[in-house]
Design a protein around this nucleic acid. Structure first.
Lengths: 191, 191
DNA sequence: GTCTATAGCCAGATAGAC
DNA sequence: GTCTATCTGGCTATAGAC
């Protein structure tokens, strides 16, 4: 019984995320979502508490997956560039696993209510961990000495935008994509 | 007379863009906008035709500025890397001049109605011009031989996200930012 | 678990006074 | 150029039948 409810809820979450990616959270109505599910809007409320409940589930689960991934990378004894490679792989993997949800994570977090502060803490911690890895690389001489803040946002915005173009390249091998990205982001495009 | 109307309209556009950046086009109401202007919602309609009219003005003017900038860069006889430098400068300049509008350009174009096809053509042409510059660089041996599509989106998503973090670094010199970005995006961060 | 019906509210936009 | 008043319709969410 509980399983059936959970499955139906998962389906709602999945389809909602797809619609949120196309039009943004605010522009998607419960009627839109219900129509895409083949049911009436009122029926949705047997599975979810509110529209915001859906957004919470989408965003927080992905944000926590990134936090968990970063925790493992931090804990390793690898050097800066190896950690960078693992971060790139983390983004490629999570983005390809949840292309639709990544759109909400990037663009609709401001519509969170109860969980917005929690989301902001997760995001700030993630960025701080990332920045520290870059700073260690600069200190150790592995990376060039430019402002870590610019370096961080240059790399991170590319990784955060992966969801926008991964779907266009379905033939793309994910491991190959990670390696190409590592090459471009770390080694540069200059020959 | 016409000037006064235009000035008031410009003010509406400017404040609307700021609100659109904070919450997205769909979540901003005409009452929100009017309150921020210190007038009533009905009064807005003496200056603009509709809510969508505001979004059109914001997005199309910036999109055309990018198209114009790219046209100049294309027409020059500079080599690939010099063109890349100019593209980076174009993005830094236009993003810093219109931080709020860039958010709508990136995130709310799907809410355009009459002008959506025109916007898509401008964007596709811009990406094609950019891609050709990268492909020329690969052919001439100036750039490494990785898929131009990945190269394009890696660089372009960083440039398109500039509006997200330029405001946080008000002390940043724009010419210095362009140079740092060129270094990171072209030369890489590896020492 | 889905339905119809509807409550309660808020949206974009217009009419017409001042 | 801004106001008040209002139209029309769409929104989230609930109640209760099946």
């Amino acid at each position: 019984m509980t399983n059936k409810i959970e499955n139906r809820k998962s389906e709602i979450i999945r389809i909602a995320a797809k619609l949120f990616k196309e039009k943004g959270y605010s522009a998607v109505t419960m009627r839109d979502l219900a129509a895409e599910m083949g049911i009436k809007a009122a029926s949705l409320y047997n599975h979810i508490r509110s529209k915001e409940d859906i957004l919470n589930t989408i965003i927080i689960s992905i944000a926590e997956a990134f936090t968990d991934g970063m925790k493992l990378i931090k804990a390793s004894n690898d050097n800066c560039k190896e950690k960078l490679r693992q971060i790139i792989e983390l983004h490629v993997r999570l983005s390809s696993q949840n292309i639709y949800g990544m759109a909400s994570l990037n663009n609709d977090w401001m519509h969170l209510q109860n969980q917005q502060e929690y989301y902001k803490v997760l995001r700030a911690n993630y960025e701080n961990d990332f920045r520290k890895i870059l700073e260690e690389g600069i200190t150790s001489g592995d990376l060039i000495n430019v402002k870590p803040e610019v370096m961080l946002f240059s790399i991170l915005t590319t990784l955060r935008s992966l969801y926008l173009w991964i779907p266009k390249k379905e033939d793309l091998d994910l491991q190959e994509l990670s390696e190409t990205l590592y090459q471009i982001l770390v080694e540069g495009i200059n020959k």
